[in-house]
Structure formats: C-alpha cells, structure tokens
Design a protein around this nucleic acid. Structure first.
Lengths: 228, 228
DNA sequence: GCATATTTGTCCGTATGTATA
DNA sequence: CTATACATACGGACAAATATG
C-alpha cells in the first residue's frame, strides 16, 4: 500500500521498549488492522526496514512473529504478504469460535461476572452505527466478542481470541462492503449480553451458537460472490 | 544440558524442507519435548548455532518462533531460556482446557466421528504403562487429548491444543516424579472414550470436566511441594 | 566494589538462489 | 532468455549489558 516516509513517523514516535523485533511487529500488526496493508499486499523488506529504521535482520524477526500469528504469509523467496484468507480459513475460524465462545458463556454459571467491558463494547458499537466507516463498527463488534471471552479469565484464551479476531478482520478487508453485515449482527450482540446479564447462560450460549452459524453463512456467501 | 557434537548429528540428518529457521525451531521443539533442555536451561546462541550449523541470525529467528509459542523465554541481554512455568500458568492452562475440551465433546452430537486416533492413543497409553520411563506414558496421555480435540475439525484448534499440551509438558519436567500421576489418570481417559463411543456426549463432557479439575488440583499440589 | 571476559543485541556487506518483467 | 529485483542465509563487527573472578 502506501509507504511515504512520514507515514511511519508517528508509529516511531512512541518507542516504548521491548525487543526491537517485537516493537516492529506491534507496529505492523496495528497497520494491518487499520487496513494500511491489505490482503495480498507485499511487505517489502527494504521498504519497511527503511521506514521503521531497523536492519533487515531485525525486521525479519518481526515478520516471523506475524507469520506465526497468521497475519502475514511467507512465500519462499518471494517475501511476506498480508495474508488473504481462503474460504476454508473462514470456515475453520467459525468452527473454532462455535466451540469456544458458547462454552465460555456456559461456564459463567456460578461465578460472579463483571460485564462492564462487554457492555462498553456494545455501547461503542451502537455509537459507531452512525459512523461513516463501517470498519469502526466492525471493530466494536469484535471487541464485544473479545471482552466476552475474556470473562473466562485465561490469558491464553484471550490471546487465542485476539488472533482469531485479527484474522477475521482480514476477511472483512477481502470482502467489498460489510456495513450492512455489521449492522445486522450488532443487535444480536446486545441480546446476548442481556441474556447473560439476567443469568440465562444456557439461552445466551445457544444464542451465541446461532449467531455464529448465521454470521458464518452470511460471510461465506459474500466472500464467494466477491472473489472465489 | 548436553551439547556434544554427535548429539546434533541425527537431527541434522533429515534436512526436510522449509525455511532454515523453521527447521531449527522444529529441532529445538523436539529436543525440549524430549527433555534434553530442561526448564530454566539457557539456550546458548553460540553453542546451538554451532551445533546445527546455522548463523546466529537464523537461530535467533527460530528462537522468536519458540518464544511466541511459550516454549522458551527471552530475558533481555541474557538470552533465551527454556520456560519455567509458574503456578499461575498451570492454572491458566487448565482453565483454558476446561473451556475448550468439554465443549469439543459436547459438539460431537449429531456428527459422525472417527474415534480411531483417539482409541490408538488409549492403547498406546496402556502399552506404555509398563515402560520404565513415565514420560512415554505422559506423552501418550497428551496424545489422547490432542486426538480428542482434533475431532472438532479445526486446524487452528489443533494448533492451540498442540501448544497448550507442549507447555504442559514443561510443567511435567518441573515436577519430580509423575509416574503415579500419569498412571492414575490413564484409566479415566479410557472411560471418557467409552462414553463417547456409545454416544453419551453429555456424560463424557462432564467426565472430562471432572478429570481436568482433579488433574489440575493434583498437579498444583505436586508443583507446590516441588519448588514454589 | 571493580575489572575482565563472555554473551547478547543490532547492524552491515555480501554471496547465492529464486521469481518475474 | 536475459536481466533485474528480491529474499535467504551467512559471517563479521561493535556497543552494551551481564556474569565472573
């Protein structure tokens, strides 16, 4: 995509520490999430290493990290590309979500739950409804699901869902206009939250299952007609 | 741990394909699983890069991969160490398993399932019962759970469980003698399999939940008295 | 507490192989 | 088919941090 020098400037500004490779990975992760690099874009080693001012060796370390997360793809001797997910990937992602997410809800029984973050995500989604960019709404919806799985209280599960939703965002970018899609499912998120709030965990879990099934079918259909 | 030259020879023998960094990562992953590098061992860059005959830069890429999987740990300016899991990690791992694994079983309802791989793992565990090394038995038990989650049919879920169980193996190495532990739970694996085989998915899922709860408590207790 | 040796973190130059115009 | 561009991998270099005596 773009690669003007000033484009990197602000990312470079806050050089919070960790290893340089992690830091660069974080920058790229964010840029991909924001759609600055779209699926199938090549991430040139030279261009980016110049942009973030790290050596190519260090940059390659960062690429490995992202490749491992499934955000970028290594094609041997061709470099790394922003991943373009196949239909198989979409199905796989939803299959995983249908296992994990309803289970998280079901397991809330008997525990005290703090729904504030979940509620905040729903509110944000409502607010984003009028926004021009559907990506804002899409992101809010993803936050809802992220916050929901966080209720399980496992950092590893959080990390998993974070990566799953990041991959899903790549799907969003590979499909033309998803405004309608995100709007349609926003309401259902709110319903699920309400069921949880009143302790109807089984119903909530079932609603989640149904939601995931419908969203998958919908997305698959759109994906099919978009590319192939 | 050990680092004699001939020790690397056989790993080097089959230079199956992929990038060199991936290949080195595979070797190290295997060596760690086999206990050749124990928790808290330092993995010297120079030593290993000499051993597998790759440059330090390439080795560092491999380290990043393993660090990302949680098998090794980067300590700034001290290098990478085989990860030593804390009690918090153990709890986190089991919390995740208690969400995912029973859910996988519950979702088998209405689908045709091929239990051959699961059955094979149980058989292997039985066979390993008389083996001198409890690690063989422990590995067989882990294979059982891996095969079970594979029934969900999601490659990402497989990858997740693969990493979770690899981390769990690190816990095993950090605790003195787990022979008794593994023997105790082998039987319960078999019971779960039988319940699944006759289509009693809910009972099987509950059995899995109970198993995970007991195993966690047991492991945590042993871990406590072992180190701290 | 200090000085030295060791090891990591980072970068560069370069040689080789691979894909694409 | 050749040329070009690029990724892969290597080895060397140096500063900075750490471990050791």
């Amino acid at each position: 995509m773009d690669s003007r020098a000033e484009d990197w400037a602000d990312e470079l500004a806050r050089l919070g520490w960790s290893s340089k490779a992690e830091h660069v990975a974080r920058i790229l992760r964010k840029r991909i999430a924001e759609g600055k690099h779209l699926p199938d874009d090549r991430l040139s080693e030279e261009e980016i290493s110049k942009g973030v001012k790290v050596s190519r060796n260090t940059l390659r370390e960062a690429f490995r990290l992202l490749a491992h997360e499934g955000l970028v793809e290594h094609r041997l001797n061709q470099g790394v590309f922003v991943r373009k997910l196949s239909l198989i990937d979409v199905v796989d992602l939803y299959r995983l979500r249908r296992v994990v997410q309803p289970a998280v809800i079901r397991d809330l029984k008997g525990r005290e739950v703090d729904l504030s973050r979940v509620r905040a995500a729903v509110v944000a989604a409502d607010a984003a409804g009028s926004a021009a960019d559907w990506r804002v709404l899409g992101t809010a919806n993803l936050h809802f699901h992220q916050a929901l799985t966080a209720l399980a209280g496992s950092t590893r599960l959080d990390a998993l869902m974070s990566r799953v939703l990041a991959e899903l965002r790549l799907v969003f970018y590979a499909v033309p206009d998803l405004r309608e899609f995100h709007v349609a499912y926003r309401a259902r998120n709110g319903k699920i939250l309400e069921l949880i709030a009143v302790g109807e965990y089984v119903k909530a879990a079932n609603a989640m299952t149904a939601y995931l099934r419908d969203a998958e079918r919908d997305l698959v259909d759109r994906y099919r007609e978009a590319a192939g």
